[in-house]
Amino acid sequence: MSDEKGFYKEFEVFSKRSETSPFTHQFSLTAPTKELALVMAQENFMRREPVSDIWIIERMHIYGLSEEEKASLQRLDNKDYRNTKGYGYLKKKWHQYEQQVLDEKEILSWQGGKKE
């Protein structure tokens, strides 16, 4: 095996702990083949923690968006009404309602009684 330029390839290693967990990036490594990269990833990673699955991806096959493509992700129309802000204000409003001072007439009206 020669040590010429381009002999080693860069790989990215992703794994997930269980069948239901998502894949997460763990580390990068260099290896001459994808098969050897898998063996190296298993040796370096699987002995440290339980792993359900591993992905080995050659870095040159990962595609990222260019600046022009990122700009195309912006919304073309103004539809802010679709983005709900939630109902967080209701808790505060309910608290204010509960804190109101109730007068005696109002309390008695709930019971259907009259003040003597």
Rank of each mutant, 00 (worst) to 15 (best):
P22H: 01
F7W: 02
F23E: 09
K105I: 06
L73A: 02
T20I: 10
M46P: 02
V101S: 09
A37N: 03
M40V: 11
S66I: 06
R82F: 12
L90Q: 13
R17H: 05
Y8L: 15
G86F: 02
L36R: 10
L102H: 12
A37I: 01
W94T: 12
E12G: 03
P50G: 06
M46L: 03
S52E: 13
G113V: 09
K93L: 12
S28P: 00
Y89W: 10
H61I: 10
D103L: 04
G6P: 05
G6S: 06
T30S: 00
E104P: 00
E19L: 07
I62M: 11
Q111A: 14
D53L: 06
M60E: 15
L29P: 05
E49F: 09
L36D: 13
E12V: 10
M60V: 14
D53W: 15
S109Q: 13
K9V: 02
H25E: 04
I54P: 05
Y63L: 13
L90M: 13
K105C: 02
D53K: 13
D103C: 14
Q96S: 13
R59W: 00
Q74Y: 08
A31M: 02
E68V: 07
L102I: 11
K92V: 05
K91T: 14
I107A: 11
Y89R: 03
T33Y: 01
L29T: 05
Q111K: 12
Q99D: 06
F14Q: 06
R47D: 10
E49T: 14
E67P: 04
E67F: 01
K70M: 14
F45G: 05
L65M: 13
I57M: 10
I56C: 06
Q96C: 09
S52T: 01
S28M: 07
L90N: 04
S21L: 04
V51C: 15
D103S: 11
R82W: 08
D77K: 13
E43W: 03
W110G: 04
W55C: 04
T84L: 09
Q96D: 13
G113I: 08
S109I: 05
E106N: 04
K85L: 14
W110M: 13
Q26N: 07
P50I: 04
I62T: 10
G86E: 03
I54C: 03
H61E: 15
E69D: 11
Q96H: 08
K105E: 15
L36A: 10
T33I: 05
G88L: 08
K105L: 09
K92Y: 02
F45N: 14
E68F: 00
L108D: 06
Y87D: 15
E104Y: 07
S66R: 10
E116M: 03
M40Y: 10
K114R: 11
L36G: 01
K16I: 01
T24D: 03
Q42F: 01
S109Y: 12
R17E: 14
M1N: 11
E58L: 05
D3K: 14
A37Q: 05
A37H: 06
D103H: 12
N78F: 08
S21Y: 02
S21H: 04
K92F: 02
E10M: 08
Q42C: 06
L76P: 00
S15L: 05
K70Q: 15
A31Y: 01
F7E: 05
F11D: 02
G6C: 07
Q100W: 00
F7P: 00
S15C: 08
Q74M: 06
I57W: 08
F45L: 15
